[in-house]
Nucleic acid binder design. Structure first.
Lengths: 203, 203
DNA sequence: GTAGAATGTGAATACTTCTTCATGTTTGCA
DNA sequence: TGCAAACATGAAGAAGTATTCACATTCTAC
């Protein structure tokens, strides 16, 4: 199924994992289309023929990498907001966790946004799924009277947008901001501003 | 220089423009790496050799398309906030203008984010430049006492993130939201929430 | 109108990549 | 231990792409 044949032995699993790991790195450094199957195989230390034992083509492997990455990011951030007592705390904790994750695994952006070039529907599904889960959390908060009453779907995209672009700033544009304490400080500073209403009331 | 030889006659300019237009469309629909030079030339109605009269390779053409697009978007949004009397109004107007622009020219996302695959430094420069200009406007607003005192660089990325992801929602994920009035409504609704502080104060 | 510059052509060459498959090796298990 | 299934190989054929270049056409200035 899916163009993927899962390995049945430990030896096969090791090879499979090596192919996935090599592909992720190469998709990040060289990009999907510039990465050849021969390179992925070579980097993983196997012959090209071995690639075709597990994946029917490069697309299937990319799809696997993307879906797995989405799952890992969701798990990571969900765990990070577990302890939060209010939505206010949860948003801060989630954003900090997300930014720290992509700092540690910088291939996240390139791999995910490459979906736009590989297969637009993959990209659309990735974010629609993220948004849908986000909205569920926001709806609960709304039910508890914790957030103002606005369109939650748009709010979910707005918050994802902040995370992604501030994450871009910290991990890709201004790498000197990558320390844990700096990330915490920038996110807190930003949320302090947002929670004050951002704009100063003028008479 | 830049790998580009500008045409010297009107006839040449027409051919040059046709190549740029065809490339933009093809980069959007098929992606940079899947688009061949033969396709660009054919779509523009010229021979492959003609391509090499103006561009030394596909990269130079992409670079030209990206820089031009950035310029057009900046001009478009700058013009849209001209009439705003407060920063609050300017942010709303700018976001509405940006989203309507990418709705009308949906190749913007795919072309810009492709920079990540084509040449990361192009991507970095694109957004750093956007941010730097944004910060200038925000600094003025801060001087006028119009916004709360937080890190302006991070704020600029946060606001760009909101524009980009809400733009994604409206133009790519939920196309039924593309009407002018709907865009205005969603942006106003979101800003109403942000200006209230987003989170309801709990006792 | 004419010279010379600018523009336009596409077949041919050189290069790269995908995918298959005949054959060999390793693993799991009765 | 033996054997069937799983796993591994990489050369070779098929398919596709970038770039060149000798030659043709069009434009512009005088």
């Amino acid at each position: 199924m899916n163009g993927i044949t899962k390995p049945l032995t430990k030896r096969g699993q090791k090879t499979f994992d090596a192919l996935v790991r090599s592909a992720t790195t190469l998709f990040h450094t060289k990009g999907y289309h510039q990465t050849t199957i021969a390179e992925i195989a070579s980097d993983a230390g196997v012959g090209v023929g071995t690639f075709y034992i597990y994946f029917c083509d490069k697309y299937s492997l990319y799809r696997f990498v993307l879906l797995e990455l989405g799952h890992v990011i969701r798990t990571h951030t969900t765990k990070a907001i577990q302890a939060a007592k209010t939505r206010r705390e949860a948003e801060r904790a989630g954003m900090k966790a997300f930014i720290k994750y992509i700092r540690d695994y910088p291939y996240a952006y390139t791999v995910i946004w490459q979906a736009l070039q590989v297969d637009k529907s993959l990209f659309v599904n990735y974010y629609k799924d993220f948004s849908a889960r986000y909205v569920r959390g926001l709806r609960e908060a709304l039910g508890e009277g914790e957030i103002v009453d606005i369109d939650l779907e748009t709010l979910s995209y707005a918050l994802m947008g902040i995370s992604n672009f501030v994450g871009l700033q910290i991990t890709m544009f201004e790498p000197h901001l990558q320390k844990d304490e700096m990330i915490d400080h920038l996110v807190d500073n930003l949320f302090d501003g947002i929670e004050k209403g951002l704009f100063v009331k003028k008479v």
